[in-house]
Design a protein around this nucleic acid. Structure first.
Length: 303
DNA sequence: CGGGTTTGACCAGCGC
DNA sequence: GCGCTGGTCAAACCCG
């Protein structure tokens, strides 16, 4: 399966047809923040990143051109202006703490999830010969797999599975083509929650972890055990996504973030299931500024 | 014992 | 049409 040679880095992402990455196109007027440990900066797609990172991003841009999703794109018509986008994501976080709001990401992408809300998109395929147990498994043949909005994070971390405030159950792991690192599949342990996430280490930069969230949490996180970091991911993963998806790209958001708390300098023992013990009680619930307010220097926001 | 992980198998989708 | 790859399932296993 995995072929480690003749690797075309791009396949890493292009293989996923549902990906839509913000690229250097008019639409990306909105701001897409990427965080870099070294410079701890964020920038739009033009960024001031390390050469290799810029390279990586370029790949994304390219992807965007080749993997556009009309359905999502159209949906994105609202494409707020950049600054607004960022701020919106933040203020939108107001909805973040709002369950209904979070569950609404679907509505932000009617073409993608309107139907998925009721009938779970993926598990539907049900692995082959398994006896259909739930309706979702009896997906009609020919019926396309419905994907929910995805949000990807590129995180510099030594830990694969980053704590994000939710509890996840691993349901699969696969070797990925062109990558020496396996991809892990997680599902939210909340039975009513269909959110899934994939975690894989970048083949190009083993120090970075690519986390892709799919769907929206229909419940609150179990807590914010790791303060800042968690709030970041949790926010994006389950609470801010709605806002983000609305104001940015409904499809995929790529954030390059290097949560200080998980870098070597401040390694925190990741407790996947846990999400309790927190050295410093940092509620970190989205404020008016929401996630961005937490991780994006105000000065950087309005671009 | 309950919940999470591992792992092999299966199927759908997509590209050639 | 075929082969490859990603995504998911579920039995077996592990761990607290």
């Amino acid at each position: 399966m995995e072929n480690k040679e003749g690797a075309d880095p791009r396949n890493e992402f292009t293989s996923d047809s549902s990906w839509t990455l913000p690229g250097p196109d008019p639409v990306s007027d909105s701001v897409n923040y990427f965080f870099d440990r070294e410079s701890s900066i964020l920038s739009e797609f033009g960024w001031n990143l390390q050469p290799d990172q810029a390279e990586e991003i370029e790949r994304f841009g390219e992807l965007d051109r080749t993997e556009t999703r009309p359905d999502l794109a159209g949906n994105f018509s609202g494409s707020q202006s950049s600054g607004a986008g960022a701020a919106a994501a933040g203020s939108g976080s107001g909805t973040a703490s709002n369950p209904s709001g979070s569950a609404d990401v679907s509505t932000s992408n009617p073409s993608v999830s309107s139907s998925s809300s009721e009938d779970p998109p993926e598990k539907s395929t049900g692995s082959g010969g398994k006896p259909p147990e739930i309706p979702s498994k009896v997906r009609k043949k020919g019926q396309k797999r419905i994907r929910q909005p995805r949000f990807a994070f590129v995180t510099k971390s030594e830990v694969d599975h980053l704590e994000d405030g939710y509890r996840w159950r691993k349901y699969g792991q696969k070797a990925v083509k062109n990558s020496p690192f396996p991809r892990s599949y997680y599902r939210c342990t909340n039975s009513k929650c269909t959110v899934k996430k994939r975690v894989e280490r970048s083949s190009e930069d083993p120090t970075t972890v690519i986390t892709t969230y799919e769907g929206q949490h229909c419940h609150h996180s179990v807590g914010f055990p790791r303060g800042g970091l968690v709030s970041h991911e949790a926010a994006f993963a389950g609470q801010l996504t709605p806002a983000v998806s609305q104001f940015y790209y409904p499809g995929v958001q790529l954030h390059r973030e290097i949560p200080p708390s998980i870098t070597q300098s401040h390694q925190v023992p990741i407790d996947v299931g846990g999400s309790r013990a927190l050295p410093e009680p940092t509620p970190q619930l989205p404020t008016d500024e929401g996630l961005l307010g937490d991780i994006v220097p105000p000065g950087m926001r309005n671009r």
